Every structure is written in C-alpha cells, then in structure tokens.
Amino acid sequence: MTLPLHPLSLMNQVYRNIMPVVHDELTYWKKRAQDIPNEELREQALASIANKTFHCEGGSIMALTALGQKDAAIKFIVAYQTISDYLDNLCDRSTSLDAQDFAALHESMEDALTVDAPLQSYYRYREDRDDGGYLGELVQACQSVLREMPNYEKIKPYLLELCRYYCDLQIHKHVCIDEREERLKNWYEKNRQSLPDMKWYEFSACSGSTLGVFCLVSYALRSDFEACHAEMIRGGYFPYIQGLHILLDYFIDQDEDRKGGDLNFCFYYANDEELCNRLIHFLQQADQFTSELPDQKFHKLINRGLLGVYLSDRKVNEQREVRLLAKKVMKQGGVVSHFFYWNGRVYRWVQERFFPWKKAF
C-alpha cells in the first residue's frame, strides 16, 4: 500500500480501504454503548456515535500514513475519537459545570495514551457512574495498539503534550459562562511564551484537534519511523494545521452556536474581514509547516481537504455571511480544495438520499 499524493487516489483509498474499517469499528462500539446500564451514560454514548461519525471518518484518513498498519491505526483512532466525542457530550450536557468532574473524565484520554496506566474512577464526581466498563474498554483499546508499537517511547512525550492541551481546553470551556473566558485567557497566558503570534481564542482552537495525535500514532506504526519524525509531526500539526481544523469547525457552526448560546471562537474576531484574513493566515502557515513534514504532498492534501470538506457542509449555504466568506477562503485553496468541496457535497447527497439509515451510527 502506498501513500496517495493526488486527490483522486486519496479519495479512492479512503472509500475503499478506510471507511469500511471505520464503520466496522463503530458498529462494535455502538453495540457496547447499547449495553451501558446507566440510562444517561448510555444515551450520551449512543448520541456521540450517532451524531459525530464524521469525526471518526475524517480522523481515520490519517491512518493512511501507517501504510500496511492502517487497520491498527484505525482501531486506535476510532477508539480515541469516540472517547473524545463521548466526553464532549457528557460535559456539554452536564448539570454540574464542575471543572473537577471534567478533569476526572478527561483523565481517561491521558490514560489511553499511557500503556501502563491503570483504569481510574473517571465518573467519581458525578452521580451517573455505571457504564458497564464502556469507557475503560475504550481506553484499553487505545493502549493495546500503543503497547504493540515499537516506536511508542519516541512519540509518547508529544502525545501527552497534545493531550494535555486538549484536556485543559475541554475543562476550561465547559465551566459556567461567567468563568470560562477568564479561565481560557489565563491558560493562554501560561502558554504564550511557547506560541507564535496568536490570540487566546486561536490557541484554544489549536488545542481542540486530535489530528496531531492521530498522525503521530499512524507514523509510529511504520517500520521506517525515525525519532526525528516525532518532533517534525508535532511541529507540523500544532499549532497551525490543528488550528485550521478547529477554526473551520467553529466557522460553519456560527449560527447554530449563536442560537444555542454556545462558545464559538469565531465570535471573538473584530469583524468578518479579520476572521477571513486569519483563516487564510492559518492555511498559509499550515502549508509552510507542511513543507517540513515527511510525505509533505500528502499533508498538503489534508490541508486542502479540510477546506473542501468543511466548507461544503450544508450549514455554510444556510448562513449568508458565512457563505460569502467561505468563497474567499476557498479561492486560497485552489483547484484541489474545490475537488474536495464537490466530493464532500456529492458524498453527503448520496448518504442522505440512498443511505439515510447510516445516520443511525
């Protein structure tokens, strides 16, 4: 199996070699979620799979970089992303707004990246606790892949660094509205020295992606992986590729978040022009850092794919200002981004028209 370097070959491999394995993995986790004894935990676990299948599908594209070990990479990616989506649901719908509770839940993500970590009482600060071992099994699924990986120690410090950013973000952004902005700003100030020039809400966005973790794990499954690759991948994906990923996610959700009163990092820009310019800046910086990665053509495809896939979402067309800005940003992506844009629209149309039951994932 070779790494695809052109849009058509990439999508061919994604549809033939990635999606079927992802859906097999999700089918298993959906069955496990159905057996969760506690009603609230069962409901949130099933909802996270049903509504966020796209996260596992998109993240698993990184498994292509594992070459012959792609199935192991997909097993890890689906399990780790499922933990992320499940915890996001629990925190979003928590009635406690308790940072201590959110921190305990997210200990599972760090444990998932630490092969010798024992399982903990992740629900210890909430009433709903009996998940029938669901979260623990997800953690152990991730550990099992890392345990068989000869290059684990080379990537471990970078995995845990990216995980810490992610978990801190989830803790700070889910507390009560009166506290979250101040917490995020203080967190940014503590990390500011190690960051390029960016605002606190952009740092938050950069911390909210799991792509760097997926890329590190996928590469480390390869026999030709070298220690220098770990630092290159970390520097390539954090902050700019991850930031581009999450800013695009928030960009298309603006109307939805405005109506729901939810935190959206795009709301903090002074105006649409600044938002557009910063999205373009993140794309340009992502391209620059991509040039220092192994298989740079593949990673540039990922950057262009992020643009096309997110900006082809139906939510863009439903928001006039977002639609106008999306056109400006898409121009920066060129022909390749337009390819992914139309591929995304066709894929969604086919799914909705001919396979509506797949939403039940």
Rank of each mutant, 00 (worst) to 15 (best):
A79C: 01
V309G: 04
V175N: 00
N151V: 08
V21C: 06
L301D: 08
G308N: 02
L97F: 10
C276W: 00
V329S: 04
Q351Y: 14
Q120K: 15
R234K: 14
I246Q: 03
E153Q: 10
C142P: 00
F282N: 12
S96G: 00
D272N: 15
A360I: 00
D128V: 03
D313N: 10
F267L: 03
G243L: 05
G261S: 00
S9K: 10
L87P: 07
L283A: 02
E189Y: 09
G236D: 06
P4T: 04
L5R: 15
H229V: 05
L283F: 07
T27D: 15
T210E: 12
E127P: 04
Q69N: 14
D168A: 13
L159I: 01
E231L: 03
D116C: 02
A99N: 01
Q332I: 04
Y158E: 04
N191E: 15
I155Q: 02
H281E: 15
Q69I: 03
D116W: 01
L221G: 01
R192M: 09
L159E: 01
D101E: 15
V309C: 09
E352T: 11
G261A: 00
E57W: 09
R180Q: 02
D24V: 01
E40S: 11
A205M: 07
E226R: 15
I241L: 13
F361V: 14
D313S: 04
P239A: 03
S94V: 04
D24A: 09
K328R: 15
S84N: 11
G208R: 08
D287P: 08
C56T: 13
R320T: 13
S108A: 15
N12C: 12
Y165A: 07
V213G: 00
G132Y: 08
S207E: 09
L67S: 12
R129A: 03
P196L: 06
F225E: 06
S9I: 08
L211S: 09
N151L: 06
Y347A: 11
L90H: 11
G236L: 05
R278N: 13
W29D: 05
V115K: 11
A360T: 03
K359I: 13
S204F: 11
A230P: 05
R258H: 11
E231W: 00
L195V: 05
R129T: 11
Q254A: 06
M149Q: 08
L10V: 03
V14L: 10
Y166I: 05
Q170D: 13
A270S: 13
T210K: 14
R320M: 10
D257C: 04
Y158I: 06
C56D: 12
A117D: 01
Q288H: 13
L26Y: 01
A230V: 08
L3A: 12
I233Y: 03
V316N: 07
Q81F: 00
Q285G: 06
Q81A: 05
A360L: 10
L119E: 15
H23I: 06
W29A: 06
Y86L: 13
G212V: 04
M149F: 03
I155H: 02
K259C: 04
L26F: 02
E321D: 11
E40W: 08
H23N: 09
L162H: 05
L87C: 11
W357H: 06
L90K: 10
V350G: 05
N12L: 14
L90S: 09
L138V: 03
L263D: 01
Y15G: 00
Q81H: 00
S291A: 14
L5Q: 14
Q288R: 14
I177T: 10
E40K: 12
D272Y: 13
E40F: 10
L169R: 08
C167T: 15
